[in-house]
Amino acid sequence: MTQPATTRWVAPTPRELPEWRAELAEFTTSEPSIVSMRGAILAGHCSIVPTMENAPLDAGTLASVVLNNAERGRLEQAELYYATADMTALALAAAAAPPRERVSVSRLPSESGFIVFEEPIGGYVEDVGAALADTLVARAGVDAKITKPIVAASWTVWTPDDVQVAEGPVTWGYTTSAGYAPIPPGSRGIWVTYYTPRGLLSGLPAETVIGTMRDGSVMTAGMIEAGQRDTPGGPLSWDHEVLLSEGTEFAPARPDTTDVWSHTLYTAWQLMTTAGGTRWAEVEEIPRERAGRKRDARQGITGSSAVRIVNVHTAHRPPREAAAEDAAVSTGRREPSWSCRWPVRPYRRSTCLNPGGHAAGDCQHEDRIVPGHIKGPPGAPLRTGSTVHLWDRQPEADA
């Protein structure tokens, strides 16, 4: 069996985010991107799919054009965020339990956004041979698996009424583990797109067989990697999308799915926007140089070109030694460990915002995240062993 790819995800510097956004927005509506999206739709990898009656294009091509145009619009309007490794680990630690509050657009730090995480917020193993099984390049017996990390997300407040095309009205449907359901007009939610790094096959041995060329010869991981270097494209690849409908509850997460990533992303929004109680995040803003702002404006980007670096507040930030220990064991392909940074995880507490109306049910609740900690006096050693109960005498016979 081919071993999973070992190439680490290396995050850009915060100052690179405006360029990444610009490249990604431009590539999203390119012909190669539309072809790739069409393949994902026909393979059933998209959960939000638009359809039209009497459309001049086939369903797959039309849907890919609509989806890619919408994604470019999200990126052009997005505010930019960079979550440091500590902030990523904190969001993962707090998201070990699903958010208790219902989905609310008021939790968003901005109506549209694009965030890059210094460490992955999750990942999953993809069987490359199985993914290509129904394509022209399929080859029997291919055994190549890669671990795809989720490292970035874009979002916007969304309603199906937002999308208008010249060919006529668009009907939207949503596919989940429970099946397919239409999205009613007028509904409201948060559209989220998740991204993986481009060029993931670079972690496989170059001679690993992936598929078959048109002439029948083998196609290897090294050939694909070389082809990607010569092909224009953004630094990230579209991977999944999800619709968080306003007012819905968060269900327990299925491992290695959008459930896990959405719990973590929503928790990051909570940590960034908490108004009362513990202040979790510190935000540093890095302005973009004037020449870069001009390029963004020429490209049609209306979102701010400044980058907001989101870090854990100094009151809760772990020691550098603890962060370094966790970073040393991180694979850069999956979510990092927080065993050293937060030995006792932060936890959620449901807070009533209107206690006077609580008894009658006329109130609203929101999550407040309570800091993790090490129990005991400061400086005392952390005890992690099991508790032992000692019986020092036999019980009485008539007991």
Rank of each mutant, 00 (worst) to 15 (best):
R308D: 06
C340T: 08
A268T: 03
E321H: 04
V370E: 14
R393V: 01
I301V: 13
T302K: 10
D259N: 15
R368M: 10
S330D: 15
A324P: 01
P343M: 06
H389R: 14
G376R: 09
R288C: 13
R288P: 01
P336Q: 10
W338V: 12
D259P: 07
P378C: 06
C363L: 08
E325L: 12
N311P: 03
M272H: 11
G385N: 12
T273N: 01
E289D: 15
A360E: 15
A315S: 12
G277I: 11
T264I: 13
P318L: 00
G332C: 11
K294M: 13
Q394V: 03
R317W: 08
V283S: 02
A322M: 08
P377F: 14
D326I: 06
A380L: 02
G376K: 03
W261S: 04
I301S: 08
W261V: 00
C340Y: 13
L382N: 11
G356K: 11
R334I: 06
V388Q: 02
E321P: 00
W338C: 05
E289K: 01
S330C: 13
R348I: 10
P319A: 10
R383I: 11
K375V: 04
S330I: 01
E325N: 03
D326K: 11
G356N: 13
P336R: 10
G356D: 13
R348L: 10
A322N: 04
H389T: 09
C352Y: 01
R348D: 04
R288L: 10
T384E: 14
P343A: 01
L353K: 12
L265A: 02
R333D: 06
R293Q: 14
I374N: 12
G372L: 03
I374F: 09
G332V: 14
R345Q: 12
A306I: 08
E335I: 00
V370I: 15
T351H: 14
V307Y: 03
H358W: 02
T264A: 15
T314H: 14
G361C: 02
D326W: 07
D326T: 12
L265D: 01
G300F: 00
S350Q: 11
R298P: 00
H358D: 11
P371G: 09
S339I: 11
G292Q: 06
L390Q: 08
C363E: 08
V344H: 10
Q364I: 12
D392T: 15
R393D: 09
P336S: 09
V329E: 04
R334V: 09
L390P: 00
L265R: 11
Q394G: 07
K375P: 05
Y347F: 15
